[in-house]
Structures are given as C-alpha cells and as structure tokens.
Measured scan of single mutants.
Amino acid sequence: NQASVVANQLIPINTALTLVAMRSEVVTPVGIPAEDIPRLVSMQVNRAVPLGTTLMPDMVKGYA
C-alpha cells in the first residue's frame, strides 16, 4: 500500500504548504504520493483543507 499526503493541520485556502502541515499515511482513496512531499513545499492549496484530509492533485496549485 502506498502512503499518501494527509493534512496534519487545517490548511487555509491559498496557504503555502510546509513540512509541518503534511504527513504521510496509507489511506483510501489514494491521494498525492508521500514521496512528493518535498515537491509540495511552498506550493499553495486552492481550497481549505481540513485536518486529516488526503491531499488530491487538484487541491494543489501547479501540482497536476
């Protein structure tokens, strides 16, 4: 099972992602792969992401 990126805190809309804001977890459905965490740092989310939410490619500006 592949680990996905999960919000480690509430991430407000247009907030730049940080290492502290993300964690890796095996979840269903699978979201952005955990190995992409370094690439996600400083990218912005295009919606509010609640704690525990799996990050999907369409939630991160410039990711997809």
Rank of each mutant, 00 (worst) to 15 (best):
L17F: 00
R39E: 07
L51R: 15
V20F: 14
E25H: 07
V49H: 02
V60L: 07
Y63G: 05
A7T: 11
V27N: 03
I32Y: 02
I32N: 01
L19Y: 12
A7C: 05
P38F: 12
V45F: 00
V6I: 12
T28D: 15
G52C: 04
V45C: 05
V20D: 14
P57E: 06
V5Y: 00
L19I: 08
L51T: 15
K61I: 14
N1A: 15
T15V: 09
D36E: 15
N14E: 07
Q9W: 09
M59C: 05
V27Y: 02
Q2V: 12
D58G: 09
D58V: 09
V20S: 15
V49R: 00
M59P: 02
M59Y: 12
V41H: 00
M59I: 04
G62K: 07
T54N: 01
V60T: 03
P12R: 09
R23C: 06
D58Y: 11
T28C: 11
V41Y: 00
T28F: 12
V60A: 01
K61M: 13
P29T: 03
P57Y: 09
N8T: 12
S42V: 03
N8C: 09
I37Y: 02
P33R: 09
G52S: 04
T28L: 10
L40S: 00
N1G: 15
V20C: 10
M56I: 06
L10H: 15
E35Y: 10
A7M: 06
P33M: 06
A16V: 11
G52E: 03
T54P: 05
N46A: 13
G31P: 01
N14W: 15
L55S: 02
A21T: 08
L55N: 02
R39G: 07
I13V: 15
A7Q: 02
L55R: 00
A7Y: 00
T18V: 07
Q2I: 12
A48K: 11
A64K: 15
P57K: 07
A3E: 10
T15M: 10
S4F: 00
I13S: 13
G31S: 02
S4C: 04
T54H: 01
V60H: 04
V27W: 04
T18Y: 06
L19V: 09
V26K: 07
P50K: 09
I32L: 04
R39T: 10
N14P: 00
V60I: 14
A34G: 07
G52Q: 02
D58Q: 14
T18E: 08
P50V: 07
I11N: 02
V49G: 03
P38D: 11
D36R: 08
L10D: 15
P12I: 05
L55E: 03
A48L: 15
V26G: 03
P29I: 05
Q9Y: 10
A64Q: 14
S42Y: 08
N1H: 12
A21R: 08
L19T: 07
V41N: 04
V30A: 11
A16I: 15
G31N: 03
M56R: 08
S24P: 14
P33W: 08
P50H: 09
L19P: 06
A3C: 12
G31Y: 04
M22N: 03
R39A: 08
V26H: 11
V5T: 04
Q2P: 15
V6Q: 02
I11C: 05
L55G: 03
G52H: 08
V30T: 11
V5G: 03
A64R: 14
A21D: 13
M59S: 02
V41C: 06
Y63F: 09
R47L: 07
I13Y: 13
V60D: 04
D58R: 08
T28N: 13
E25W: 08
Q9N: 08
R47W: 06
L55D: 01
I37K: 02
M59T: 03
A64N: 15
A34V: 07
V30W: 09
Q2R: 08
M59W: 11
P33L: 08
A16H: 13
E25M: 10
K61H: 12
V5D: 01
V5H: 00
T53G: 10
I11W: 02
Q2M: 12
E25C: 08
E25N: 07
N8S: 12
V30F: 11
S4A: 03
S24F: 07
M59N: 04
L51D: 12
R23D: 05
S42R: 10
L51F: 14
T18C: 06
P57I: 05
A3Q: 09
R23T: 07
S4I: 03
L19A: 08
S42L: 09
V30M: 15
G52Y: 03
I13K: 13
M43V: 04
D58E: 13
D36G: 03
P57D: 05
E25A: 11
P57H: 07
V6T: 04
Q9R: 13
V60C: 05
G52V: 01
N1Q: 15
L51N: 12
G31E: 01
I37W: 02
N14V: 04
G31A: 04
L19W: 12
E35W: 10
M43Q: 06
S42H: 15
G62Y: 08
M43F: 08
N8I: 06
P12Q: 10
M56C: 06
T15F: 13
R23I: 06
P50W: 06
T28K: 08
I13D: 11
I32G: 01
P12M: 08
A48D: 15
L10M: 12
L17Y: 00
V41L: 10
L17E: 05
E35I: 12
A34P: 05
Y63S: 05
R23L: 05
T54R: 00
Q9I: 12
